[in-house]
């Protein structure tokens, strides 16, 4: 029998062959992410993993660890610290970097504001979210990173739904949606010119619920603020915002003590809490399944400003 005849026969097995082996959808997503991580390590000279302390970047670290086991993660974790972080998230960040034996690089938005005399955002919720871009671009330049791995997911937002897994940015960090490279099969082209940079999103195809199911299945540790706890909050346009050194109540605000958890972990100035009694992963996941509000809509104060908010930020070099 010739080679081609043999192959044809084997590729189209008889219906009786039945199911031998198959991967659960979560394992398929994991396989895809690990493949992407290994491509990054092989294709780039100086990659870095952008770490925020949130569940998505924690998942990234967990996947990276699997991709390179028994070796260590072959790139540093980089945190762009706005100075408005939850202390629990910072503590967790330091613990995790130590736990996986990764180098942790922290660069502060505070320092960029001083060096570049940037104008601090004002108002009751002074978000430094937008200013992170400056610090990020400086950090990329300082360490000559040619690739930054991020935890963005396509289900989060309309602009992200259109971004490639390997997203080439020019030397200003800008995304050009009309000039994206075709991304074919599982072949990733990370070639760039000097000064350019690639943002790579290994969990592009995961949804919020996929992340939570993975965290549960793999028993991934999370910062405590993801679980219900008591906190002093004010209500702002239907969202609960924690009182902190960065957000102070006005005379008109009613300060309430509520049992809350966070669904996303960003800055204290732009992340809202949700009322909750969920103190275990199972309870958190059950709540998420039964809520009919999207993650960004529920917990991000800054995305509501304009419908194209994320698209604008990405075009300007944002994650």
């Amino acid at each position: 029998m010739s080679k081609s005849e043999k192959s044809n026969q084997e590729i189209f097995p008889s219906p009786q062959a039945g199911r031998v082996r198959g991967l659960d959808y979560l394992k398929q997503l994991e396989a895809e992410s690990i493949h992407i991580f290994r491509e990054v390590a092989a294709q780039f000279e100086r990659p870095a993993l952008l770490f925020s302390g949130g569940k998505d970047s924690i998942t990234l670290v967990h996947l990276a660890r699997k991709a390179f086991a028994p070796g260590k993660i072959p790139f540093p974790l980089v945190h762009i610290d706005t100075g408005h972080n939850f202390p629990e998230a910072l503590e967790f960040r330091d613990w995790l970097a130590n736990e996986v034996g990764a180098t942790l690089i922290v660069r502060k938005v505070e320092d960029t504001i001083k060096q570049k005399s940037l104008t601090e955002p004002k108002g009751k919720f002074p978000s430094r979210n937008w200013l992170q871009t400056y610090t990020l671009l400086d950090t990329i330049e300082e360490f000559r990173f040619d690739c930054c791995i991020g935890g963005a997911r396509r289900d989060e937002e309309k602009a992200r739904a259109k971004e490639r897994i390997f997203s080439v940015r020019d030397e200003f960090g800008q995304w050009n949606p009309k000039l994206q490279r075709p991304e074919l099969w599982n072949i990733y082209n990370g070639r760039i010119h000097k000064g350019e940079n690639v943002r790579v999103f290994p969990i592009s195809n995961w949804t919020e619920l996929d992340i939570w199911n993975f965290i549960r299945k793999e028993k991934v540790d999370l910062p405590s603020i993801y679980f219900a706890h008591e906190r002093k909050v004010i209500e702002h346009e239907g969202q609960l915002v924690a009182i902190s050194e960065f957000v102070q109540p006005d005379a008109s605000d009613v300060v309430l003590t509520k049992k809350v958890r966070y669904r996303t972990v960003g800055d204290m100035t732009c992340t809202a809490a949700v009322e909750s009694n969920a103190s275990t992963l199972d309870e958190v996941i059950n709540e998420i399944i039964s809520t009919r509000i999207s993650e960004r809509g529920e917990t991000r104060i800054d995305d509501k400003v304009t419908e194209a908010a994320m698209e604008d930020r990405k075009k300007n070099g944002y994650f």
């Binding site: 259109k162 994206q180 195809n205």
Partner: peptide, 25 residues
């Protein structure tokens, strides 16, 4: 998704969407 698309009423690029039923993702 993108502003140019909304303005022109066309789709510029491949967009990815996700949904799950009890049977499949």
């Amino acid at each position: 998704g993108l502003r140019a698309e909304r303005e022109q009423g066309i789709t510029i690029d491949v967009a990815y969407r996700y949904f799950t039923t009890p049977k499949r993702k």
